[in-house]
Computed example of a mutant assay.
Amino acid sequence: MSYYDGKGVVITGAGSGIGRALAVELSARGARLALSDRNGDALAATARRCGPSSGDLRTDVVDVTDRPAVMSYADSVAGDLEPVDVVFSVAGVLHTGSVLASSFVDVEEVFAVNYWGVVNTTKAFLPHVTKAEHGHIVTISSVFGLMTAPRYSAYCASKFAVRAFTESLRQEMIIDRKPVSVTCVYPGGIRTPIMRNGLFAAGEDRTAVTNSFDRVVARTSPERAATRILRGVERRRARVLVGADARVIGGLLRGLGDAYPHVIPSLARLTRILRGSAPG
């Protein structure tokens, strides 16, 4: 029997990428699912992918930035699933652009989805999860929640915030002896549409950045990421690194410590020099 068989599982951002892969895998493992996304068509496609093995499955169009809607949704889902065993807060948006070029509107949108979406979801579902015998809250940060990178200041800041929020929550659950485990996931480059659907500051070459991400960075499939995440949750890990790149970066950061911010600009300058001297 699967660890997830019969468990009530909530997934926000289930319309694509990691959220969809988690939904399909958990459906196959016998979980009772409540899936949400702000894109109704994408959510319906996920439900179809779950197929005839899905059993108990409900789908709702919910925007995680809409706090009253999330609170109402949580109460409704709790009435259906009872108990809510695991909540995956997956919804996220990527932003590319320098601080100077980035608009306040885009930065606020990144925080509304990436950070406040996690806070809204966690706050809405935590009272219900604490009623489960062994509840679990799972948030998605990023390898950019472990390190910063130029031109991704808003995204990095939001994912660092997710990391801090999640680690504090885990400490509280331990101190208060609540029956809730807390896991923060740090994906590296995953083959999802997050870059194609992302926000771009003025002057950014969307096509070039997206092609580079798809060709060079996105090395791990969503399905493989989902498998690793579910294994980490089953083992009640505090931190799950997804992808070889994330594990390598995690090791480098342990070695470099506070020196890593000084290394990044040097690498960027070297990359520009090499590109400038390359033939063609």
Rank of each mutant, 00 (worst) to 15 (best):
D5V: 12
D5C: 15
V9F: 10
V9N: 12
V9C: 12
G13C: 09
G13E: 05
G13K: 05
A14Q: 12
G15L: 07
G15N: 08
I18Y: 02
G19M: 09
A21V: 04
A23I: 08
A23D: 05
L26A: 07
L26H: 03
S27I: 11
S27M: 09
A28V: 09
G30V: 11
A31F: 06
L33T: 03
D37P: 04
G40E: 15
A42W: 06
L43H: 06
L43Q: 07
C50F: 05
G51D: 05
P52Y: 03
S53A: 15
S54W: 06
S54V: 13
L57N: 03
T59F: 06
V61Q: 15
D63Y: 08
V64N: 03
R67D: 01
R67V: 10
P68W: 04
V70Q: 09
Y73H: 15
D80Y: 14
E82F: 10
E82S: 15
E82Y: 10
E82Q: 14
P83S: 14
F88D: 13
F88Q: 12
S89E: 05
V90F: 01
A91Q: 10
G92T: 06
G92I: 09
V93N: 04
V93F: 01
V93C: 08
G97E: 07
V99G: 01
V99L: 09
S102D: 00
F104E: 09
E109M: 10
A112M: 00
A112D: 10
V113I: 14
V118C: 10
V119C: 02
V119P: 00
N120S: 09
T121K: 04
T121N: 04
T122G: 01
K123I: 05
A124G: 05
F125A: 08
L126V: 05
L126D: 03
L126G: 00
A132R: 08
I137W: 00
V138R: 05
V138P: 03
S142G: 06
S142H: 00
V143A: 12
G145T: 02
G145A: 04
G145R: 00
L146H: 02
L146M: 07
M147H: 00
M147W: 00
P150Q: 07
R151F: 05
Y152C: 12
S158I: 03
A164C: 07
A164Q: 00
E167V: 09
R170K: 11
E172F: 06
E172T: 13
I174W: 05
K178P: 04
P179R: 12
P179K: 09
S181D: 13
S181I: 06
T183V: 07
C184S: 11
Y186A: 06
Y186H: 10
G188K: 02
G188E: 04
G189Q: 01
G189I: 02
R191H: 10
R191C: 05
T192M: 14
G198I: 07
G198E: 06
L199E: 02
F200S: 12
A202M: 07
E204N: 02
E204D: 07
R206L: 14
F213A: 14
S221T: 14
E223T: 13
E223D: 13
A225K: 02
A226L: 02
T227M: 08
V233T: 10
R236S: 15
R237H: 10
L241A: 12
D245A: 15
D245M: 08
G250K: 08
G250W: 03
L253F: 03
L253T: 02
G257M: 03
Y260Q: 15
V263L: 15
L270C: 05
